[in-house]
Design a protein around this nucleic acid. Structure first.
Lengths: 176, 176
DNA sequence: CTTATTTTGTATCGAGTCGATACTACTTGA
DNA sequence: TCAAGTAGTATCGACTCGATACAAAATAAG
């Protein structure tokens, strides 16, 4: 199966620059996830992994100075994660970007077809396994565009204001 | 990138039945590779890994009784690998089969489009990294259909007869 | 025919993954 | 208030994986 070979390929590129595949994936997630989702448990859900494993990966990333942990004011159990400047620089050298460039051999049409096919297969699989889609905030059923209470947009699930940036990031809570 | 999420998904399913992702991939390879390719170095090239890592994986599979090693008569450095009966049974319970069934949400058309897109991206990547395609024997430039020297087919690279089964398996040496 | 040189595979190390289990600390809800 | 649930860490054992070093056999070059 080709998807399997791709997975292997992506993984073998994931050992560059002194990081491990799991660490790259955590970094990428933190670069794309909105503030509500940048927590160890958000990352755990995204990776389909376990709390213990993710905890170790984050310790490694913190030791390398790529990720910073901050206490959550409202929930003293929770930890907020953010990329450091070095973390953002690392993402700019992400080996995956190169593979992403390989998609250029495809025409626009084919690229869209590939994306749609993968999306629907993924959706089917997530449904069966109870995984979360992690879609864009603005495509969520709880997203209220141009809400009337000050902020540009609003989340009716968490009941908070959303910036334009927020709405372009992925979210643990997102539902179609 | 969706391909990345798929890779992660495939990997997290790879811990079932007491095997690890790398072990499953080795097992799958040995179930699909022709006799010339069922060696530690063939597997190494397929996985894009290193000899040392593959050696360890094979030891683990041998200990579990899923793979058997045999000496090569002609080349006393080489090791021939084959699945045991238990190894073949394990492949029948491969968790990947389930994910493969997820492709059924796609129509014929979309499935073909997906396959073509992945194939061309993969080919581009392999060319840049010097990887081998591991295509079917019968699609190889060295494949001689219905050769005249007894065997049904023939390989003009290795200069050996090929059975019908041989020609339907993947090969390290395959070239378009 | 001897040396290189290459090829095939194993052994070992250190950092890290990953599922499992156990545990602490905090929050929530009856 | 107190039991149940949630967020996260610590630790264990099996394994991965790149790197390095090594041994044995095959091949090439002189």
């Amino acid at each position: 199966m080709l998807l399997e070979r791709f997975g292997r390929l992506l993984q073998s590129r994931g050992h560059e620059l002194g990081l491990k595949p799991a660490q790259w994936e955590a970094l990428r997630y933190l670069g794309r996830a909105n503030r509500f989702s940048r927590t160890p448990s958000g990352l755990t859900a995204y990776l389909g992994s376990t709390k213990g494993t993710v905890s170790q990966t984050l310790i490694a990333l913190e030791d390398k100075g790529l990720v910073r942990k901050k206490a959550d004011r409202d929930d003293r159990r929770a930890v907020r994660l953010e990329l450091t400047a070095a973390g953002r620089r690392a993402l700019e050298a992400d080996p995956l970007l190169e593979l992403e460039a390989s998609l250029d051999v495809l025409g626009r049409r084919e690229e869209v077809a590939l994306d749609q096919a993968l999306t629907s297969v993924l959706a089917g699989h997530l449904e069966r396994t109870g995984g979360r889609p992690f879609g864009l905030c603005r495509t969520c059923r709880y997203f209220e565009k141009n809400a009337t209470d000050g902020g540009p947009h609003r989340c009716s699930l968490l009941e908070v204001k959303l910036s334009a940036d927020d709405s372009e990031q992925i979210c643990v809570e997102q539902e179609a």
